[in-house]
Amino acid sequence: MTLPDDFSFSQTSLSDYADCPRRFELKYLLEQRYPAPIVAEQLELEHRIEQGARFHHLIHQHQIGIPPDLLTRHLDDDELLAWFALYLRSGLDDLPQVRYPEIALTVPLGDHALTAKFDLIAVDLGERAVIVDWKTGGRVPRADALAGRMQTVVYRYVLAKGGAHLNGGAPIPPERIEMRYWYAQGGESIRLPYSAAEYARDEAELRRLAAEIAARADFPLTEETRRCAFCIYRALCDRGDRAGSLAEWDGEGESDDLSGFTLDIEQIAEIAF
């Protein structure tokens, strides 16, 4: 199946493509729902996802002006309380004052579009912009590993390409952009500055990837079969009958499109009346 004209790429879809072209096709082109478990320990994963979602929600509420004491007064999850306390202490260190929480930006990518959904963009007009991504997973990767992640590539590129309206109408130069991963479990912060050279490299690579996907007539299965244990389509592809273990999974439990875990607000509203 070919890519529809109105398709919009995201960091998740590009990561999926990089992992397995067939997964990309099933998930985004055929929109095939396939409700097999991602990992064997479904309850534990659900708990992590829910905790991550609540933490992001808390920060969103805080960023739009709800006082912390109103938010924390009756939180019943000690871990979440600890994360939030840490966030209040160090999560906002050295961040510009103009804040855009939970904001999405879309930019053109070849004949298609590329969308990024940011946890937070903080801007000092005409000076600098910081992208913050809150992480609730326990593992803190090395900075060079994070720099190579599709999320880093897409987020920094999209802000540089399409963030002018957040900067008084002037494009934000790449060298004024920083991507920051903040880890709730220990309060670690990993900062990844950007540059014009990296921007040019990312643009070329993203365009190449989009063109490659658009030109594809078929989408082969990945050759790295170990990934299939953590893919919902493994049965469809005859690649196993057991989900892998959560301990071996390298996902983060806070992905924006784990099928079925997201609350579709518009749909609920529709059904409701």
Binding site: D6, T106, P108, T115, A269
Partner: peptide
């Protein structure tokens, strides 16, 4: 989504219920 206008695809549509 098909428009050749930057960002047009991310314009939001909502119902009263969705906003609520």
């Amino acid at each position: 989504k098909r428009a050749r206008v930057e960002g047009a695809g991310s314009v939001r549509a909502a119902t009263l219920g969705g906003l609520a």
